[in-house]
Amino acid sequence: MPEYEDLQETYPGAGTFKFGHDAESCTAQINLVRRGTKRAICAALADFEGAPEAMPVVGRTDIVAHWNNTPALIVKTVKVQEVRYCDVNTNMAASDLGRDEFTAWRKATKAAIKLDHKFDPEMLLVFEFFQLIEDLDGRQIEPRS
């Protein structure tokens, strides 16, 4: 019988989150992090109003999960920045999208925001810049109950 690792013992206090709004986008974004091109995630500030404990914090380590909730990556937050959608620069967009296509970032982010909020170009976004700590591919992880 294989030995399983409990990630909460290895990374105490780590939260868990998923990228995207579906399995396909989640997998694509995990792969971009693995390649080193995706180094940030952004969300509407309004997403955190009902859950302030979910707000990213510099120095915090988190578990990035696959869409089916199995652990994929460990990341550490290195910078958090609040910025209006209209003020996002090309470097920020490339860090989130995983490639240097500013117009594509604007289109994709606007569409994602509209799934949960009324879009306003002056709305505040939270940009969380992170560092990949560990790729969990192939690890024996203890199933969460």
Rank of each mutant, 00 (worst) to 15 (best):
Gly13Val: 06
Gln140Thr: 07
Ala51Trp: 12
Thr27Leu: 14
Leu7Arg: 09
Ala65Met: 01
Gly36Leu: 06
Val126Arg: 06
Ser95Pro: 00
Ala14Gln: 05
Phe17Asn: 05
Asp135Cys: 08
Pro12Tyr: 10
Arg34Leu: 07
Pro143Leu: 11
Ala108Gly: 07
Leu32Ala: 14
Pro12Glu: 12
Ala23Met: 05
Asp116Thr: 10
Ala112Arg: 04
Asn89His: 13
Ala93Gln: 05
Ile30His: 07
Glu5Trp: 08
Arg35Asn: 14
Val64His: 10
His117Pro: 00
His66Asn: 15
Ala14Val: 03
Ala72Met: 06
Thr70Cys: 01
Asp62His: 12
Glu122Ile: 00
Pro12Met: 11
Gly59Leu: 07
Arg60Tyr: 09
Asp135Glu: 09
Lys114Ser: 11
Lys18Ser: 12
Glu101Ala: 12
Asp87Gly: 07
Ile113Arg: 01
Arg106Gly: 00
Leu124Asp: 14
Arg99Val: 00
Gly36Ser: 09
Leu7Trp: 06
Trp105Glu: 05
Gly138Asp: 10
Gln131Cys: 09
Pro121Val: 03
Thr37Lys: 11
Lys76Leu: 00
Arg139His: 14
Ala104Asp: 09
Ala44Asp: 13
Cys86Val: 02
Gln8Phe: 06
Thr90Lys: 15
Thr27Val: 05
Lys107Glu: 09
Gly50Trp: 04
Pro56Thr: 04
Pro52Asn: 11
Gly15Glu: 15
Lys38Trp: 05
Asp120Pro: 00
Asn68Arg: 03
Val57Met: 12
His117Val: 02
Ala94Asp: 02
Arg34Phe: 07
Phe102Glu: 02
Tyr4Ile: 08
Val126Pro: 03
Ala112Lys: 01
Glu122Met: 07
Tyr4Gly: 08
Glu3Lys: 12
Arg139Ser: 10
Thr77Pro: 05
Glu142Ser: 14
Ala72Val: 04
Gly50Val: 04
Met92Cys: 00
Glu49Gln: 14
Glu101Asp: 15
Phe102His: 04
Val88Glu: 03
Thr10His: 03
Ala108Val: 01
Arg144Lys: 12
Ala65Arg: 11
Arg144His: 07
Thr70Asp: 14
Ala108Tyr: 01
Gly13Ala: 08
Lys18Ile: 07
Lys79Ala: 14
